[in-house]
């Protein structure tokens, strides 16, 4: 049985067995949940299908959320892609478009998969679905990589937090980016150690990021933070696959995230009392929405 207390331990166990982290997590979860591995794969595949549906639905929708605070940005990104406009290359642009699309579907009360939360639901699917298309990966491979994401996510949830109300946005979009980065590394043939480094690098880049949603709604800045979270995951995976290592070990990075989350004032943890939510524009918008 795996205790999910340490990402390093997960990576070391996988290295020792000569298997990817996903295989370890899948085998362990089947044991712990008293279900067959095939059964778990099928359930995870259902989530992948919902992720893909949300991405394709959101990219063409262009509709606004009930509050009017978000919507239409994924469509703009798609139009830019069609116009051949991309600074960072098509993988990056496509990733951003999908992350925006899924986060907008969420804001419009569409169906998504919390990964790990609804507020950060665009990051993991945007990265993995884009890599799948760009590198002709199979559905099975992507489903397996979700077990790696989930395994690391369990460690983060246990040792720090995946909730914005508890740990700020670093805990929500940061954790999603870290999970996506590790899954991307595994998907692209990286080692378990590289997965651990990617996880650490992604979190380090957003340590201290606060959760300050306008009017308390999962829209501003959340929708765009899904895009930046997905980009963060790609950046971290790219570095890790190049052999770049995190100087601070991954579990210490996760512990630092917890300390920072604990030290973060309550006004910056999903209460909509500080940060962006406390700007004159945000306050005016909130008054109008809840009038």
């Amino acid at each position: 049985m795996i205790s999910y207390d340490s990402v390093q331990e997960l990576a070391d166990k996988a290295t020792k067995k000569g298997k990817p982290i996903s295989a370890l997590v899948l085998a362990d979860q089947a044991l712990q949940m008293e279900r067959s591995q095939q059964d778990l794969i099928e359930e995870m595949n259902k989530s992948l299908q919902v992720m893909a549906e949300a991405a394709s639905k959101g990219i063409n929708s262009g509709s606004k959320s009930a509050s009017g605070l978000s919507g239409g940005d994924a469509l703009k990104m798609k139009q830019a892609i069609h116009a051949g406009q991309s600074l960072g290359g098509m993988v990056l642009s496509e990733t951003l478009a999908k992350a925006l699309a899924i986060a907008e579907v969420n804001a419009c009360m569409g169906r998504i998969v919390a990964a790990p939360t609804a507020g950060s639901c665009g990051i993991i699917p945007a990265v993995l679905l884009t890599l799948k298309e760009a590198y002709d990966l199979t559905e099975e491979q992507v489903v397996m990589s979700l077990f790696t994401a989930a395994g690391l996510g369990m460690v983060i949830a246990k040792k720090a937090s995946i909730s914005g109300a508890e740990g700020g946005c670093q805990a929500e979009c940061g954790s999603a980016a870290a999970m996506a980065a590790a899954a991307a590394v595994e998907l692209m043939g990286g080692t378990p150690q590289m997965c651990a480094h990617a996880c650490a690098i992604a979190i380090k880049s957003v340590l201290g990021l606060v959760c300050d949603p306008v009017a308390g709604l999962v829209e501003v800045p959340c929708v765009k933070r899904n895009a930046s979270g997905a980009a963060n995951a790609l950046i971290a995976a790219e570095m890790a696959l190049a052999g770049i290592e995190s100087v601070i070990p991954v579990d210490e990075v996760i512990a630092a995230m917890k300390d920072i989350g604990d030290a973060m004032p309550k006004t910056l943890k999903e209460t909509a009392e500080g940060g962006l939510a406390d700007t004159p524009t945000a306050k005016k918008m909130a008054r109008e929405i809840f009038r």
Partner: peptide, 8 residues
């Protein structure tokens, strides 16, 4: 962690 499937 990856789930639930839900409406936002």
């Amino acid at each position: 962690i990856i789930g639930p499937i839900m409406v936002g």
